Each structure stands twice: as C-alpha cells, then as structure tokens.
Simulated scan of single mutants.
Amino acid sequence: MIGAEQMPFSITLEPQEGETYQDVLAVARRVEALGFAGLYRSDHYAPVWGGEGLASTDAWATLAGLARDTERITIGTMVSPVTFRPAANLAKVIATVGQMAGAVDGRTRVHVGLGTGWLEAEHTMFGFPFDDLGARFRRLEEHLRVLRGLWDPGTPRFSFDGEFEQLKEAVFAAKPDPVPRVVLGGSGRRRSAGLAARYADEMNTPFPTPASFRALRAALDEACAAAGRDPIPLTVTAVCVIGADEAEFRRRAERLHVRIGDRPFDEWLEQRSDTWALGTPERVLEHLTGLIEAGAAGFSLQHLLPDDLDMLDLLAESVADRLEEIRPEATAPDRAV
C-alpha cells in the first residue's frame, strides 16, 4: 500500500468513452484501497477517441456520488471546461460536492481542475459556447475570479461585471470550508502559467517531456514572482500502461490500441514513448524520474483500461511505492499537492 507521506500520486479516468458510474466507482474503491492520493475524471459530454454513441456521464454528478461512496481520496476534475457551466453555478456545485465529501486532516477532498475547453464538436452538439481561443481564455479568467470571490469568507456579498459573467450582490452561503483546491490545467508558458500564478493553488500540465516540463516550471515560477506569490506546485498528467514484463505490457498496450489507436500499433506506440509512461515498471519509473528531476510535484496517471484493476495493483506496488526513494527536496511535503 502506498505510504500516506509519499508524493501525490493519483489516477485519472476518461469516462466519456463508455464507462458507467459503477465502472468509475470500482476504480475509485481500488484506488482508495491501494493508498493512491486521489481519483480525477475528465469532463466531457462526448467521446474523445471512441466512436459515436458511446455512453458518458456528467462529471460533477459522478463526483457527488464518489463523495459519499469513498472516504479518504481526493476527487476532482482534470479538467472542467469553463464553457460548460456558468461560474456561479459551478461554484455552488463544487461547494456542494465538497460538503458531501467532507475533509481529511483539515484538507479539502475536492479539487477542481479548470481549462478553456477544446473539443468543438461536443460544444456544437450540446449548445455550449465555443468562441475563439482568446475569448475562451478570458472566460477562464472570469470563472477563476468568480469562484475565488464567491468562496472568499471575507466577502459577504460579491459583485462582478465581466464580459461573460455578471453577478450583483451575490450572497454565497454556506462558504465552503475548507475551500476546494483550484487546479489550472494547461501547458502555455504565458497565458496558462499567468492565470495559474494569479488564481490557482496548482498547475497541471498534460503529456510533457522533461525538457518541456522544465521550461514550463521556469515560466510558472517567473509568473508567481510577478504575482507576488511563492511558487505553486506543477504536476503532470500522463497516460500510463504498465506490465510486469514486456509481454504483459504489450498485451495491455494492444488492448488500448484497439480502443483508441489511430495508426499501426508499433508506430502508434513509438509516437507516444516520450510523453506517456509506458512499459515495464523500470521503464515507467525512468520516465517519471525524469519529470521529478525536472521539478514535478505529483502525478495523475490516466488509466485508459478501467476494467483492468490488476494494472492498478502493479502500479502501486512497483512504481508508486518506489517514487519516494528518488524524490528530491524540491518536491518534498511542503510543496505537496
């Protein structure tokens, strides 16, 4: 079982690819039993990789269920598009899920990852606004400001007059206590890092190499200094497929390729070798170690074979338990997520 003091090491699911709540709950319970820090899920209304007609579930309704059906793990989105929900509505939903989940050792169990939204097809299908990227970034900043304003215990009434959000003397009760953790999802060194530095508790970046991560870490530190803050944690999301040996790894990778592959298997695998955590435990450890040495403060590994709970066992026993031995002081507990 993973030690409680280890680097934050969580699992992320993509339930829009046909998973039910029961599928998500089965993974959540195994994640909790193994001692992982948390379980995140994507927030999509349509499949990203699979074919048309795959079932999907609402992210925050699912998290409300997990709040009652789990006891310890962090739960949250990685990430929620700000295009899906008005800011005040999202603030209330998150606060409600936080109340349902309770706290562990005084810390919130609920993390909200936020992003601009990117899958235009689902916006068109369901009537969500999908403006140009600049407008989506402006909407993201307004959501961040509204969430912070509504949740602020020192602000009994909150007003906001923005391009997308207008609130007048809003009384938000009860204020969430503890306040949910805000995670800014992205990889941009200017706009994403700047917003994270001003409004977020953490930034999470998907599929980096050690070199790209190091550059983003430097940009985020610079943005935090400009905002008058100490550096905030920068964490990683990456797909993980692991096998006890090469043959087991390839069997799992071939299953995933059937599900989401877009080119011949070996070519598909090779193109992802620099940004996904793939292979035997030693190879996965090597990939994650490079990111730790570049400054990663934690990991959320995408588990894209959700019915394969044995892979989670292997990941906990052969990788997560060993990461603590190689973690440098730069990612010690005072920087933990």
Rank of each mutant, 00 (worst) to 15 (best):
D230Q: 10
A219C: 09
T155A: 13
P231N: 11
A174N: 09
G149Q: 13
G117Y: 01
P178L: 06
A200E: 02
A200R: 03
E165S: 13
A226R: 12
L144P: 05
E169N: 14
A173V: 14
V183W: 10
P210C: 07
N204H: 05
G162T: 09
V171Q: 14
P233D: 10
M125E: 04
P206L: 03
D221C: 04
G185V: 06
A225C: 04
R229C: 04
R217P: 01
R189D: 11
D131F: 02
G115K: 06
A219N: 07
T116P: 01
E120F: 03
A170K: 00
G186L: 08
R217W: 02
V241F: 05
F158K: 06
E122N: 10
A227H: 00
A200M: 02
R217E: 13
A247T: 14
C240M: 14
V236N: 10
D245G: 09
P206M: 02
A226F: 00
W118Q: 09
R136P: 04
I232Q: 00
P206C: 09
V171Y: 11
Y199A: 04
L133K: 12
R229K: 14
A174F: 08
R198V: 05
G127H: 09
R191F: 00
W151C: 05
C224D: 08
L216H: 04
W118S: 11
F137L: 11
Y199Q: 03
L195K: 01
D131W: 03
R139V: 05
L167V: 05
L144V: 12
E141R: 15
P231E: 12
